[in-house]
Write a protein that binds this DNA or RNA. Structure first.
Lengths: 348, 348
DNA sequence: CTACAATGCGTTATCGATAACGCAAATAAT
DNA sequence: ATTATTTGCGTTATCGATAACGCATTGTAG
């Protein structure tokens, strides 16, 4: 591997000059710059990351801002784990990461946490933008760069990137899988769509995607919609119970637009065989989900690898701010389909 | 972040002593060692990767040994791309990677390539063990560490790791998806299983997994088996043609155990609507596959992210040999299910 | 024509970990 | 008791990139 010194020797100048040219810091003639660039090309100069990183060691500080780990059935713990993994890695590169949590159902908690983060003097923020309206105001004139994960606020064009899901498409995909589970040609069938609490952009998009698939491809399928109000198992159970009691027969399939599918599964299991075999599709591989999948109560889980989102998000922020890498404005993570037969390969 | 110097100052010794204790290089008393270890704990010492890497810059050389990129419909190019990505990354850490290719249908080509790699003086080898018998002999007393990707030879216990697929399980999963596509209750149906040429362990496992699912779960499904002999489009087409002509009716589903599903798709497309709508399941997202998926000719593609396998494999080898990290003996990559509706999220 | 800035380039300390080297003091061997 | 050897520890050059500093030379303003 060629070093700065190799280039300098080849051209007949000093490393200082080469470095100035490399970083366009002025104080050189265009003539030597041309020669240097040619030599770099020929000798295939690659900067030594270690040397660069070592020299540039100056306590970088970042923070992440996501909902409380236990909210949404533990979904945010997965994201937090990814952030922690990135944090450990960045630690040995001389940076620190603060994890800040807020109550996603409280405007107050959210804005206080965000304000605290903005005032804490960190160099960059990783934000799960689950409260777009609250956050938008505060971020308008944020002095520091930020990156969104999980949920986006596209209007904030200064955000350095968004890493997350294509939620409409994931709903659409759920629709297809449900359609397959119903069995072709067994019309008419009735499917129950459950919209969990804390309705945000992504939930609505998933619902819309699901509906869109059914309307365009499976006209014989009738959709019923149910809205949950509390992110809690008991409440979910009773709500589902009253909904199912009011019907003539059991639905032919149930779709839950987030990880609350966990509650639906525990309900169906409790109610026995007839209920358990209703096709059930939902989101996110949170702890405890595995058993319902391997028992076959949950047929498909879609996931957008929250752990990876957290990890990637933090690493991207670092690369953007410290290494000056270019980053994509929008990164959609792969939509994974998890079912009984490939579940094991997704466990860490 | 605490540095060696911080630890040294805290204990009242020099950094040389701390370093010797850290690396157990002798020349210290157990008494100071104890104090140092305590200080490291308290001050949360994390070695600075950059400083370490910089000091240890000494041209590490590795090589990879995989089949020719165009074989198996271009499957190996994906793996090679992953290795190249790792190579670029490791380059800036001062290491080089040679990519060596061999003809996977020639024992001679394989053993010459392997011998060349072993004699080239590299520090570690990444090997796609697609010719277990040939390779086993040569690797018995290989002087250098090696790691397998894609295909394994579990008997060689000195291999530092294996990164790849659980092929039986992936066949089993294919079986489930095929079952869904057939539509529940539409028995009896007949499914054609195609075993591509170059029959190896993984192909056979996939076939076995598929058959196992059907036998255990879908007794009404009748399986027919067809064996291909040449890895070539024309030959595949004529073989498939003669097979389909000898039947009373079209099969209700087709399963191809590797990326040759590409040839099957091009055949079905050519033959028009009746053929195109036959459920078709296969493997690997090779270039050109996308269009058949989005047209709906291929219903499901399973993939074990060959690009990731190549990348991960090379990085793991590096971590094992250079950073002395512990590595898992066996890593199964996630089994991804790709279909029309999530295809886009898997394109890079 | 002097002052003084701007240009072009070389020199050097620095980041943190590593490991070779050197020097005492303690212990062992003769 | 004297020479070897071992033990315990400090000192220092090194890896490559960075950027501050310094010193000429050229250009420009008063």
């Amino acid at each position: 591997m060629a070093t700065l010194k190799d280039i300098a020797d080849a051209v007949g100048v000093s490393i200082g000059t080469v470095d100035r040219i490399l970083h366009k810091r002025g104080r050189y003639s265009e003539k030597t710059a041309e020669k240097v660039r040619k030599a770099m090309e020929e000798l295939q100069y690659t900067p030594n990351i270690h040397a660069r990183g070592l020299k540039k060691t100056k306590q970088h500080r970042f923070a992440s801002l996501i909902p409380l780990e236990e909210q949404d059935s533990g979904y945010w713990k997965l994201l937090a784990d990814g952030i922690r993994r990135a944090s450990a890695e960045l630690g040995s590169y001389g940076s620190t990461v603060d994890l800040i949590f807020f109550d996603r159902y409280s405007s107050d908690s959210c804005s206080r946490a965000l304000q605290g983060a903005l005032d804490s003097g960190v160099e960059g923020l990783l934000i799960a933008a689950v409260r777009p309206d609250d956050m938008k105001r505060q971020l308008q004139d944020a002095g520091i760069p930020y990156l969104f994960v999980d949920s986006d606020i596209p209007e904030l064009t200064e955000r350095c990137s968004y890493i997350g899901q294509d939620s409409f498409q994931s709903g659409y995909l759920s629709g297809k899988l449900m359609h397959l589970l119903l069995g072709r040609g067994s019309y008419p069938s009735r499917v129950l769509m459950i919209e969990p609490p804390g309705s945000n952009y992504h939930l609505k998009q998933r619902m819309a995607g699901f509906r869109s698939y059914m309307e365009s491809t499976a006209p014989g399928v009738e959709l019923e919609r149910m809205k949950e109000d509390l992110d809690e198992e008991k409440s979910f159970h009773s709500c589902l119970e009253s909904c199912l009691e009011n019907r003539r027969s059991l639905p032919d399939g149930i779709f839950v637009a987030n990880s609350s599918v966990y509650y639906a599964a525990s309900y169906l299991k409790k109610k026995g065989e007839d209920y358990s075999r209703i096709p059930l599709i939902g989101y996110d591989l949170i702890p405890g989900m595995e058993s319902y999948i391997s028992e076959g109560i949950i047929d498909f889980i879609l996931t957008q690898q929250p752990e990876l989102q957290g990890y990637q998000g933090m690493i991207t922020l670092y690369e953007y701010l410290v290494l000056n890498k270019e980053v994509q404005k929008e990164v959609f993570v792969p939509l994974n389909i998890i079912t009984r037969e490939n579940l094991r390969t997704f466990e860490t």
